[in-house]
């Protein structure tokens, strides 16, 4: 009696069945909307397959030279040489194919992040109401442990590389939205006023003034999105995605330390290459 009075058993008899609700919601989505999710999977699948086929189709030497040239153009000749050396090394580790698969996954995830994220960021910068609604959603997308939403992703999109890319898109889009919003909001008010005083329409102000001036910040967001997508791509191996996550995952399962090690090394090197190249792009976009 006394124990009841002080609430020792407060949580013993009643629990809120959120667990059941979530399960029911996912099951309901699965049984009613699976065709819908299978449809929105299509464009991701097409893009991924296209890029994947392309990257695998090009002879490694040609690909290395293209990457070298691209890195030189985007950043500097040092970054070019580094990219050439890093990816060449990864090739000689015997992970060239996996690296290309991962690169294809990252590129397709980032393309979708840009297509969806930049417009959302612009909307958020123009409407405080929209920004307020969007913010907690972005928090959820960014902080929910990946393992938590891998299960519903599998149920709705099946297993495989495409499902992995979709999980990656969800996880890595927030920084791009946030920094697009921030970049546009940070454009000096007096410059926008000047554009207004010359009779610019809101659209002209956006495209001729705000976006160009926000570009360095947007590029920083893109860089973050690429880095996050690379980290997610590894976790995606858990749901059957291919690429560099696979050797890591296999190494973990079979206690093959060496295999996991070279997988990890390849991921780090690829991440560094992508980081330097996109940072270089961001610098190019920066006005003097």
């Amino acid at each position: 009696m006394l124990a009841d009075l002080f609430g020792y058993h407060l949580f013993d008899n009643h629990t809120i069945p959120v667990r059941e609700w979530i399960a029911a919601a996912v099951t309901w989505l699965y049984s009613n909307y699976r065709p819908f999710f299978q449809t929105i999977k299509k464009p991701v699948e097409w893009l991924l397959n296209g890029i994947n086929a392309g990257l695998h189709g090009v002879p490694p030497l040609v690909m290395l030279l293209v990457i070298f040239a691209l890195a030189w153009w985007a950043a500097s000749w040092r970054v070019g040489v580094f990219s050439l050396a890093a990816l060449g090394f990864v090739g000689f580790l015997g992970l060239w194919g996996d690296t290309m698969t991962t690169l294809a996954m990252v590129i397709s995830a980032v393309v979708f992040c840009v297509v969806v994220g930049v417009p959302l960021g612009i909307l958020a910068s123009r409407s405080n109401g929209f920004a307020t609604v969007l913010r907690p959603i972005l928090d959820v997308m960014q902080t929910t442990p990946a393992f938590v939403y891998l299960v519903p992703v599998v149920m709705l999109f099946s297993i495989g590389t495409v499902a992995g890319v979709i999980a990656t898109i969800v996880f890595s889009m927030p920084p791009l939205i946030r920094l697009t919003n921030l970049g546009i909001r940070q454009v000096q008010g007096d410059v926008v006023e000047a554009a207004t005083a010359f009779g610019s329409s809101p659209r002209e102000i956006l495209f001729k003034v705000q976006i160009p001036l926000a570009l360095p910040t947007i590029m920083a967001g893109l860089n973050q999105t690429i880095m996050l997508s690379l980290s997610m791509v590894v976790i995606a191996a858990l749901i059957g995605a291919g690429g560099l996550g696979l050797p890591v995952f296999e190494g973990l399962n079979a206690l093959k330390t060496g295999l996991a090690g070279i997988g990890g090394l390849a991921i780090v090197l690829l991440a560094m290459v992508l980081d330097r190249v996109t940072q270089g792009l961001g610098e190019r976009g920066r006005h003097r």
């Binding site: 007096d190 410059v191 006023e193």
Partner: peptide, 8 residues
């Protein structure tokens, strides 16, 4: 404008 407000 006072602070020029040029497009940088």
């Amino acid at each position: 404008f006072q602070r020029f407000s040029l497009f940088p």
